[in-house]
Design a protein around this nucleic acid. Structure first.
Lengths: 347, 347
DNA sequence: AACCTGGATGTTAGCGGTAACGTTAGCGCT
DNA sequence: AGCGCTAACGTTACCGCTAACATCCAGGTT
């Protein structure tokens, strides 16, 4: 055994070094750093002191390899730019930190192929669990997850077949509620500006919920636009600019007195475009969003919207994941964190 | 050697399993999955086929332990909610992906203690490099980094003593430029709404640059407020609401014709508050921001601001880190990605 | 005195890969 | 034929840690 830590390939002090310096066995050092209780206070002190002196930092790669647990989870999100899921990531981060887990995060746009690649890349590092966004995945992803047997939580949707667990809310109901809110206020010609990325269940559900409510009230349900623009990445259309374009498209389609948007960003864009066109909100045009981003409360006259509980959702997702990892029983594999309608000046 | 993969503790097929199935040695399988060239095409095919059949996914924990390299880097950011550094994260992510690196990310608020804890947590996983935000760190952090000998890039600031490398821009110059822009437009009583988190070099530099320009022009440089609010987390004050509060404070301080803000979020908040107070922008009040977030271009009448090149900065940071990790020579340890003044309707 | 107990510590055998070096066979060259 | 050379593969010795089991010893029981 090499006695000189400087001669080690890694350059790091190892548990052996600490053990030797403290005059105890390797295993005792391991116990100290794992906070295992079966070490006397005196020994623990001595080991920690020597560890500190040698600048010892435990190597989790080795520990994980030996123990088969990594205390790490992987998170797959569409985008890191989106402040929408930033809250949910924050919720996960806070919950995970509390339980001494770390996480890796990868953004995959809205591509199922990239998602599959990300999942495989994660699995190579043998995480203890995974969080995926949405409930639509490629066959390859399903195969990898099946093969891994890893705990998985899907977030933001509870619609669709689930892999394992999910945290989210009923997008269909939320879409219906916000539509009924406008209907109750007496608006009749109500348009809908959709999220410009096709095939996402949560946005489909929002739209269908809203349109169903319109139909039920005997109102036209065909004033729907999706402000996609060839020049932009799909994601860039899900934004202020997209909302502005959406309003323009809607006004071309015919007379519109109110606009429902699949996202607050779109709704804010609509308000800006209305300002530019000299339309008063809500007098000439009522606007409602989805998400209750910070700006919704701040922009005059206040944006009526659906508040999603992203932070709580993230926390719930992490909590379920940890419970499953640590073998604790789960009350239910799906956690509905709900939503709430926030009525402000815009509608 | 256990021949039954199902009996393995991990449940995963290993290289040995693949080697046995393909009738080659362990080392050949390793070479195939590392894309090492010294394997014949026929053998490679056979190994990959067997690997696929067995659902083999290489265990990087083991590989990293043996090789001493992890192909992973750690990123420390103040907040994940801030879309400001979301761009820079995206830049890093894209650059890292290209070079087959993964990253872990941790948010630490503006606490130097949490930062130190995050750095240690990263080091336990033996990353190949680290990215830190800002150039102010605790002694503990410095000690850990010195001991690790890891490549480190600091981002968003180039002011202050550097650990190793940095990517950012001259905040002092940018602050001066935006102030001079307002001065050139004839505004005299110019207020400054600061970032409500004390002790961050980049915001100090922005403010000092701006105030220096005001003094140089013989204008009052004491109309400075920091919209901190006891009820909020510091971070929550760095936002629309903070901007609204800042304008209120500024107007109490005296007559103000123009407002410089340390962040676009604050500036947008100022515009909203001006709207609520019936003040026209820019006729009654000119406003300038910092960051050029998407909303700056969309909000009427357009926000004059400093565009920071977050994405390029993130890319540059990752690029430098990888160069250092892979032993390629670096042209310079500090990369200045610059900034640009964007003049719109608000000032 | 012999026995049991249980907390504190040590020993052994891996976890699943990779680096470094060793071996083999086929080929061209003198 | 004998030699060296190289591509293609195999062997061995770890990387730094933990699970599982073994050991030791003080103190209480019977």
């Amino acid at each position: 055994m090499s006695l000189d830590p400087m001669k080690r390939p890694s350059g790091w002090a190892t548990m052996s070094d600490v053990a030797q310096a403290a005059g105890v066995s390797l295993m005792t050092v391991s116990r100290v750093y794992k906070n295992s209780s079966a070490v006397s206070a005196a020994t623990r002190e001595r080991v920690l002191a020597e560890g500190e002196r040698l600048g010892f930092v435990p190597n989790l790669l080795a520990g994980n390899l030996a123990s088969g647990r990594s205390a790490m989870i992987g998170i797959v999100v569409p985008s890191l730019r989106n402040s929408n899921n930033a809250s949910s990531i924050q919720g996960m981060a806070d919950c995970l930190r509390q339980s001494a887990y770390q996480f890796m995060i990868t953004n995959v746009g809205y591509s199922l192929e990239e998602e599959a690649a990300a999942v495989e890349a994660f699995i190579r590092r043998r995480p203890d669990g995974l969080v995926l966004t949405g409930t639509r995945h490629s066959e390859e992803t399903y195969g990898l997850l099946r093969g891994s047997g890893l705990p998985v939580v899907e977030v933001w949707e509870t619609e669709g077949p689930l892999i394992d667990m999910a945290a989210g809310f009923r997008n269909h109901d939320a879409g219906g509620d916000i539509a009924r809110h406008l209907i109750a206020r007496g608006y009749d010609r109500i348009g809908y500006i959709d999220y410009p990325v096709p095939g996402l269940r949560r946005y489909d559900a929002r739209r269908e919920g809203a349109l169903a409510a319109l139909r039920e009230a005997g109102l036209p349900a065909d004033l729907v636009v999706s402000p996609q623009h060839a020049a932009d990445a799909a994601e860039d259309s899900a934004s202020f600019r997209g909302g502005a374009r959406g309003l323009a498209q809607l006004l071309e389609k015919g007379d519109v007195r109110a606009v429902l948007c699949a996202s607050d960003l779109l709704a804010i864009g609509v308000i800006f475009e209305a300002q530019r066109r000299g339309l008063g909100v809500p007098d000439d045009l009522a606007v409602a969003g989805f998400g209750d981003f910070e700006i919704a409360a701040e922009i005059p006259p206040g944006l009526t919207t659906i508040r999603t509980h992203g932070y709580q959702m993230g926390w719930a997702a992490a909590d379920m994941l940890i419970a499953r990892i640590e073998g604790r029983p789960l009350d239910a594999p799906v956690r509905d964190v709900g939503y709430s309608l926030v009525s402000r000046g815009s509608a």
